[in-house]
Design a protein around this nucleic acid. Structure first.
Lengths: 119, 119
DNA sequence: ACAATAGGGGATAAATTTATCCCTATCTGA
DNA sequence: TCAGATAGGGATAAATTTATCCCCTATTGT
């Protein structure tokens, strides 16, 4: 794996949650898994903008952080299912709050984001 | 500025909030501004791990996204104060929820983060 | 005269994260 | 027999974000 050169700062709760949620697709992965899309191929279809490789990597990190667990069915063709751990479940209300805020302010957000990009 | 080559995905509320909060120090900046540390030099002292330059850049982005506003006092030496906009204020409960979750699970988080780094 | 403080920003390097490409394996259906 | 689905990963390139270095203005204190 990549060996970090700049040490992490893990001083407060915000640092800690950032460490496990930071990653372009992680929050969405947790969200979709919570909604019942548990197989890697389903998740890839739900998030077509992400490459297969990156989703695998981020799923692995979520698993190492014990937010999700991975169950392998010994069948052919292979079948794998992810599910939220108990710990991962406690994060759902927080993610929900994030999404809700984004939805509540969708119009304004689109405006300011677009405005900034055009400069 | 840097010209983006990969288009953003702004499909849902989670994408939108991600766009304005993604940045190593942004959440903390909002938090400290909310706590009353409004001057650039104060913020730099509160977040010593960040370089001055990066804080300025992230503050500028927060301002362009209309989460904070910047007031310049025409005095010498210069004085600048940031404050949350009304819009930025609506984000505080969300950030609070993030920090609270991190605090509530601090011990477990430290364990899993450290464990993963040691591999 | 000189350092320190206040606020800012250009140029460039380094770090980190994502994307791309290619390869592995087995079974099902046309 | 060939295409497609299923799941995964190594090697490497590209994109993006952060860090570092240096420079500017003007005032106050030593």
């Amino acid at each position: 794996m990549y060996e970090r050169k700049i040490p992490l700062s893990l001083n407060c709760g915000l640092d800690l949650i950032g460490e496990v949620l930071y990653g372009k697709w992680k929050i969405r992965l947790l969200w979709f898994i919570n909604e019942g899309f548990m197989r890697p191929s389903e998740l890839q279809r739900k998030i077509p903008d992400a490459s297969r490789r990156v989703l695998n990597m981020q799923l692995k990190e979520l698993e190492e952080h014990e937010l999700i667990s991975r169950k392998i069915y010994p069948v052919v063709p292979p079948k794998v299912e992810y599910s939220l751990t108990e710990f991962g479940n406690t994060l759902i209300p927080v993610i929900s709050a994030l999404g809700q805020w984004g939805d509540d302010h969708e119009e304004h957000l689109r405006t300011v984001i677009t405005k900034r990009l055009e400069k």
